[in-house]
């Protein structure tokens, strides 16, 4: 593992938000690396900048200063359009509130990221069916999000995140809105993705049980990583 190039390299990363005339420093000169195939949990109190850091790594936010290299690509120097294309191919997202499109069925939600690839309709359906099967929902493909439990919705979201076979999976409090049983299901699913499919997983959480699933736990406090 030591011989491998890290999948994520962060150098002197800083980010602040402006609120009126006030400048709020959220991240201050953060540097760290994540090895390929790692399962990392990012902990810390509310408002410590976990989401901000995760968004920066996933290419959905812009840093003020510093560099981020993911899978050999310096994403901090990509244009907005290049970044969008890069995300579509390289990053799978799992959110706290699932963020499925309510008017689309489970299989349509999973199909969504594939619309940006050159796949045909039948190939898209085939891929979507395969990942829904993987998360144990092959009997719920035509259900709308509103007809599924929270745990099932999060499993659809996991299927959507992995359908494009991304390099990294980012999850922002994926169990934050789930009961214990569903949370456990989701966590073991993410563990399987890491161990069996070799996906690099970066998970923000403040649930210690969730963090214990990860191999490495880093804590963010007052903009500083420990």
């Amino acid at each position: 593992m030591e011989s491998k190039e890290p999948i994520v390299q962060i150098r002197d990363l800083s980010k602040s938000y402006r609120r009126g005339s006030q400048q709020i420093k959220v991240l201050e000169d953060i540097s760290f690396e994540i090895a390929e195939g790692e399962f990392l949990a990012l902990m810390g109190p509310s408002g410590s900048g976990k989401t901000t850091l995760l968004n920066l790594i996933a290419g959905i936010d812009k840093s003020d200063k510093g560099g981020i290299v993911v899978g050999g690509v310096q994403i901090t120097s990509l244009s907005e359009n290049e970044l969008a294309r890069w995300r579509a191919l390289n990053v799978g997202f799992i959110f706290q509130f699932y963020n499925l499109i309510p008017v689309l069925t489970a299989i349509e939600n999973v199909e969504l990221p594939l619309l940006l690839t050159g796949l045909s309709k039948s190939e898209r359906t085939e891929h979507a069916m395969a990942v829904l099967d993987l998360v144990g929902l092959s009997d719920r493909t035509e259900h709308y999000p509103g007809q599924l439990s929270g745990g099932q919705q999060q499993r659809v979201a996991i299927a959507r995140a992995i359908v494009t076979d991304p390099v990294i999976l980012v999850a922002d409090e994926p169990t934050g809105d789930l009961d214990r049983v569903s949370a456990q299901e989701v966590l073991s699913m993410m563990e399987n993705l890491n161990t069996q499919l070799g996906k690099t997983v970066i998970m923000v959480t403040h649930d210690p049980r969730a963090a214990s699933t990860a191999h490495i736990v880093r804590t963010l406090e007052k903009g500083i990583l420990t």
């Binding site: 959905i60 959110f95 499109i101 990221p113």
Partner: peptide, 14 residues
């Protein structure tokens, strides 16, 4: 606006 943010996250362009 949140849904459009999700679509953009997935790589949908302007």
């Amino acid at each position: 606006i949140g849904e459009y943010a999700v679509l953009k996250t997935l790589g949908f362009g302007s």
